[in-house]
Design a protein around this nucleic acid. Structure first.
Lengths: 210, 210
DNA sequence: TCGGTTATCAACACAGTGTTGACTATCTCA
DNA sequence: TGAGATAGTCAACACTGTGTTGATAACCGA
């Protein structure tokens, strides 16, 4: 997906490339992206700084490659999300949001770095937006369907609602992961977010009430 | 509030300091914080780069000074927000959220830059968090009161709800201002956000229904 | 064993930040 | 009025990190 510095894929070269990615992910776990230099990545992969440029055109490209794997996973997961919201809407939403939370938590270093780089780098922004878009498309499809079958009240545009709720998830989860202030506890996130989604989609706590 | 490079406040010096702030705000309107160099700020204020350091210890300190004025305004505004939610809860929330939106829109350059710098700079993070906290305190007080008088259902922690909704506002508005994708139209924001707030606080579109 | 591709890095060029030290202008009170 | 103090200014320097060049070594297939 992401462009590399050579034509064919040989063994030793790929190992180096991988070593850079592994190093990057490891370093990002303990410090911010800005505080990791190309020198650090190169040293971690056992090469010199100029050699780094043989594998990646920039530090951002490394982040992009890491993000790329996360995005692929997200799109795969979202594609397999069940859409049977008729029988247990509240549960179904909670499970979907749970998957969103899970992706963030299991890739917290990359997520945090990507969100920081988004403002600066077009490609990161594009890639990130692709992944958010897949969540938004899923949710707005479902909301529209729920409104169509009369389970959810109209009075709000399904797309706008889906975008807002997904952006809320993004922000609330990053705040929790980074222990910002204000933020909510990581453990409370799923519960609180689900409640807001359900109330604002259905106008009630207990849609399709048992 | 923010520390300066000299002891007493003389005329010429203050004008210079102000010229730097004015330059910064002007440049931030057209390009990102990272793309504005200290050289640019100095030149804009009619001084050399070393002289810049006489007035501010760093580029971040300039942003901090700009942000400081915004934060002061926010705290003042929030302090004067009416708390009479009994007669017209929906309208009262919409007006409060409208003020939040207004602050962002009228200081979009500083807001965007501050959000970007937040990840990197402790002081910016602290100052930003102070302003978000004042919105959160206001909203969670009101939500708690609404729950106490039985207008809003319990079943969700008032503080966690307030934090989540305020973070949603922050994120949705910045996405709209920066024309990110996904995002909602700037003109739709107030309406969509209000609906989500009201539904998720009251579990209904029409609390205290007329 | 030769020619091309892969892989490597010392040395360089450059941009931006932050510091030093010397200099000038102004103000102050004797 | 004129000798310090203080405010204000900047050329020149030191440093850090990025990205580039060109020369060189290691390998691999014909």
């Amino acid at each position: 997906m992401v462009q590399r510095g050579r034509r064919s894929a040989r063994v030793s070269g790929d190992e180096r490339q991988d070593a850079i990615l592994v190093t990057a992910e490891a370093l990002l776990a303990s410090r911010a992206f800005d505080d990791v230099s190309i020198e650090d990545l190169a040293r971690g992969a056992g090469i010199s700084r100029p050699t780094f440029y043989f594998y990646f055109p920039s530090k951002d490209a490394v982040l992009l490659a890491l993000l790329d794997r996360v995005i692929t996973e997200v799109e795969h997961r979202v594609g397999h999300l069940p859409r049977d919201f008729e029988s247990d809407p509240a549960g179904a939403w909670t499970r979907s949001i749970g998957m969103f939370v899970e992706v963030f938590v299991s890739h917290r270093a990359v997520s945090t770095a990507a969100i920081g780089a988004r403002a600066r780098n077009d490609e990161v922004r594009g890639l990130w937006s692709r992944s958010m878009q897949s969540w938004v498309d899923f949710s707005s499809d479902v909301i529209r369907a729920e409104q169509a079958r009369g389970a959810a009240p109209a009075g709000i545009d399904a797309h706008d609602l889906a975008v807002s709720l997904n952006l809320m998830n993004e922000r609330v989860i990053t705040a929790a992961l980074n222990r910002e202030s204000p933020a909510i506890a990581e453990t409370a996130a799923l519960d609180v977010l689900s409640t807001i989604w359900i109330r604002s989609i259905y106008g009630s706590d207990n849609p399709g009430g048992r």
